[in-house]
Computed example of a mutant assay.
Amino acid sequence: MEPSALSVPQLVDRAVRNGIAVVPGSAVIDESGWDFRVVHCRDEHGREWILRSPRRTQVVAPAAAEDRLLRLLRNLLPTRIPEWHIHTPEFTAYPRLPGTAAGTEDPRSLRYHWAVDPIGPAAQYLGPLARVLTSLHALPPATAGLRGTTPDQPRERIARQLHKIQTTLGLPPGRRAHWSHWLENDYGWPTTTVPVHGDVHPGHTLISHEPGGAVRLTGLLDWTNARVDDPATDFVDLYHAGGPAVLDTLLTAYRQHGGTIRKGMRDHIVELGDFLWVRIALLGLHTDRPHLVATARTRLHELGTPP
C-alpha cells in the first residue's frame, strides 16, 4: 500500500519547525494534484507559501531531481519558476509565485476549465509560453543536469504502454491496430531529444490580469516530470486542454521564437493527445484510482475506430 501524504497539520508543523511562521488558520488544502498534496498558507509577514508532500513513493526521487533542476534553470528561462527553500523526501516548501493558474482540471472528467481565453486578443499567454519552451528545448541536457536519451526511447516507452494496456484492460476495436501502425511508421517521430518540462498544462502555468484586460504569463510550475524527451511532449497537455486552435497558435508562436517543428510533428502531437488516455488508465491501475481508469476507458471508446 502506498504511504499517504502528510496531513495539513503535519505540513504546517513541518513548516513552523523549519522557520516559516505560518499564520494559524491560513492553511488551505489543494487536492487536485496527482502526485502531491499541496497546502497554501501565509506567514506572519504576509508572504504566501506552498507546502507539499508526495502521495506516492515513486515521485520522491523525481522530486529530489526537480530540486536540483530548479537550481540549475534559475535565470535561464524567460519566466519565473519555483525557488525551493526547504526540501526533504516528505516535505517541500517554497514562496508562492505571483499569478493564478490559467485553468483547472475537473478531477472526475479530467476536462479543463480555462480561467482565460488562451487565444483571445487580450491574451499574452501562448506566445510567451512558446518562448519559454523554445528556450528550454534549446538547452544542452547537461546544462539542465539531465541525462541524455536517444530518440528511440520515447517510441519504445509507448510500445510498452500499448502492450500493457492491451493485456490489462484491452482496447476498442481498431485502436490497437492504429497505434501499432503509428509505432511502426517513422513519420512524425523525433529524430532528436531535448530537455522538456513534461507536464505543461493550464494548471501549471501562472497568469496575471493586467490593467486594460490584458492577460500575461507569469510563471511555470511543477517540474517533477522534467526529463530529456521528445519536444512534442510539451505540447500534448495544451492540445488536450484547448484543442486544435490552442495547439496551432502555440506551434506558430514556437516557430516564430526559433523552435524547430519537424515534419509530421503536429500530427504526432495529436496522436500523443489521444494516447494520453492510455497513460491515464495505466496510472489509475498503478495507483488504485478506479475513477481514473473508468474515465480513461470512456474517453478511449469516445475516440472510436480510426479511419
Rank of each mutant, 00 (worst) to 15 (best):
L6G: 08
L11F: 09
V16P: 07
R17Y: 04
R17T: 09
V28I: 14
R37D: 13
V38D: 10
H40D: 14
R42I: 12
D43K: 09
P54N: 04
R55F: 03
R55D: 11
A64F: 10
L70A: 04
L73H: 00
L77R: 05
T79S: 07
R80Y: 00
H87Q: 12
H87I: 06
F91T: 07
P98V: 00
T100N: 04
A101H: 09
E105V: 10
S109Q: 06
P121V: 04
A122C: 09
L133C: 03
S135M: 04
L136K: 02
H137Q: 05
R155N: 12
E156P: 09
E156Q: 13
E156V: 06
E156Y: 01
I158Q: 12
A159G: 11
A159I: 05
R160I: 08
G170Q: 07
A177V: 13
W179M: 10
W179S: 07
P202K: 01
I207M: 09
I207R: 01
S208W: 04
H209L: 15
P211N: 01
P211F: 01
D230T: 02
A232C: 15
V236H: 02
D237V: 00
L238P: 00
Y239G: 06
H240I: 12
H240R: 12
R255F: 06
K263A: 15
D267K: 08
D267M: 10
W277M: 10
L282W: 01
G284Y: 01
L285P: 10
P290T: 05
A294L: 15
T295K: 08
E302W: 03
G304L: 13
